[in-house]
Design a protein around this nucleic acid. Structure first.
Lengths: 324, 324
DNA sequence: CTGAAAGCGCTAACAA
DNA sequence: TTGTTAGCGCTTTCAG
């Protein structure tokens, strides 16, 4: 920048002001500076700027696994939104491991990120305290509330009720659930909603038909095997997400169990997969890109100084296909 | 850091050396510093360090669409590898638009990224010249060579030959291709390999059965419609990747065309989808995570100073399932 | 084994 | 309308 200043015959402050437009500059001077900038191919050094202003342009996105289509779409939408505001998205995977979650969150502070969007699984509810004390904007996308952060969560009560009502109406009686991990933060709200809706629909969910899992395809396969080993087998399965539902389908195929004849399967998220598998998966749609946009909005507001602790709900809805 | 120095009764230089281990420090001094660091909860400011050293810890990953499972897996693997070396991965989508590709590449230089991994589509072959002149390590993942960068590309000649031989052996005669865009940089090597292999297998690929597309699911649907409108319909389709192959399957279903009875379909990449759709997709596997690891290796070598222009090939292989 | 001090490139008072 | 200057927090000579 000193070079540009010299070349244009002005001070470096003036160059800075021309570039930022933060104070009026005489046309003539501006021209000279712009000319010099062009001639020298100068670009601002964002590192120096960050050091000076204390503001970074990097936002962390911390998710269990970016290869899960739900998070990949969320990441895409977040990136689209934030890029338009000059921010960059840094992606990290936790594999849903608590230690990794903690490490990465510490890193957000250590690296002076401008903000963070996270889907925590096993983090303490007040794990964001330090972060917020350090003044780092944060948004959580989860089914569970965490202290001191903005939240994006599904509004899925009605959809789950419709799902269970559908199962009841089609003559199903015993519903199994491939749930989330037992040690997840804040329990398992999706499971609770399912239980409530089942009760309302007059369906039973026996304890031994609720099997915990890691939100993975493999968890779906294993879960299905456990369901088949139950004293009384279920005639329907609700899955914590579509990836596990696909695992359940894998398991059913291996076991020669017919969907939906022998057993109905319902997923959650409506990722691309859902309409591709056969039978097509009935699922509770939870639009990942919209979640990403909401998270971006909340985060941008915080970064702009509105220090709120708000909750934004994204409506989930039942999509009926042929697995029920 | 000054605070820590004061608290420990040493100079800030000593604090720096304790933290970096770049020169021996008396045990007593070290203890005092570490104690002070702990008490004050001090962490190094990476921005200041970057400014001083001129080295950033951010690596850009520039891909058409992170929501495409291939790139999502690539991103996951890249992130895993680079994180172990203290780097962060910044993801950006180009939507395969040339202008966006150029913008993002300029930004890599402007933002002083430590390196870049990119899948370009419409970029000039020498678009990396500026970048390399600026000394930014770069790795391209593509089927095409670009000047002045390391490359990760598929070694798929044998696999494509096997694919076409398989089609010939199962009595197919007229092969259609859903190819890449016509204005892609360096033409369409996948198409060329298919043509060569078809000739070797004694199969014809009429000009009107080669339809260009954008590597998207939609391109698969549209491409299939065009193939069905041809004078003489194909009895097999090779697709530029699995996402388009899924689009072809969508199209076939809508048109009431049976796979594989009426037409065989072969994809490329072997993403998760491939084994999930029905019929299961025969495809040329190209392991995204391995591509990510290779890219990481090449990039790390460059960032360590080995200024090579190397090509690393990842072996692709035919996976035969039920769509052929 | 340790300290003093320069300086990375920028921004934002403050002064003119 | 413009310039001078301090300093963001760190690393790294150079000197002791």
């Amino acid at each position: 920048m000193t070079d540009v200043a010299r070349a244009a015959g002005v001070s470096s402050a003036t160059v800075s002001y021309v570039l930022s437009g933060k104070r009026p500059v005489a046309d003539e001077t501006r021209q000279a500076v712009e000319e010099a900038v062009r001639r020298l191919g100068f670009t601002l050094n964002p590192v120096a700027r960050s050091l000076r202003t204390g503001r970074s342009t990097f936002v962390a996105l911390i998710v269990p696994d970016i290869a899960n289509p739900f998070y990949a779409h969320l990441a895409g939408a977040l990136q689209d939104q934030l890029r338009a505001h000059g921010y960059h998205v840094v992606v990290s995977n936790t594999a849903a491991r608590r230690e990794t979650e903690e490490d990465l969150l510490r890193e957000v502070v250590g690296q002076r990120f401008a903000g963070v969007v996270m889907t925590p699984f096993r983090l303490d509810r007040d794990a964001f305290k330090d972060l917020r004390r350090a003044g780092v904007p944060a948004v959580v996308s989860a089914d569970v509330e965490f202290s001191d952060v903005d939240l994006v969560m599904p509004d899925s009560t009605a959809a789950v009720q419709r799902a269970l009502a559908l199962l009841a109406a089609s003559g199903r009686r015993r519903v199994g659930v491939i749930a989330g991990p037992e040690d997840a933060t804040g329990g398992d709200p999706r499971l609770e909603r399912i239980k409530d809706a089942a009760a309302a629909a007059g369906l039973s969910i026996p304890k031994d038909l609720v099997v915990p899992g890691e939100h993975t395809r493999r968890a779906g396969v294993l879960g299905f095997e456990r369901l088949m080993a139950a004293r009384l087998r279920p005639d329907a399965v609700m899955c914590v997400n579509d990836v596990t539902a696909v695992g359940v389908m894998d398991g059913a195929e291996q076991a020669g169990v017919e969907i939906p004849a022998d057993i109905a399967v319902i997923g959650h998220d409506d990722i691309d997969f859902a309409s591709l598998v056969r039978p097509r998966l009935t699922t509770i749609s939870y639009p990942a890109r919209q979640v990403g946009r909401s998270a971006a909005r909340l985060l941008l507001q915080q970064m702009d100084g509105r220090a709120s602790c708000r909750v934004e709900r994204v409506v989930a809805d039942l999509v009926v296909r042929s697995s029920t």
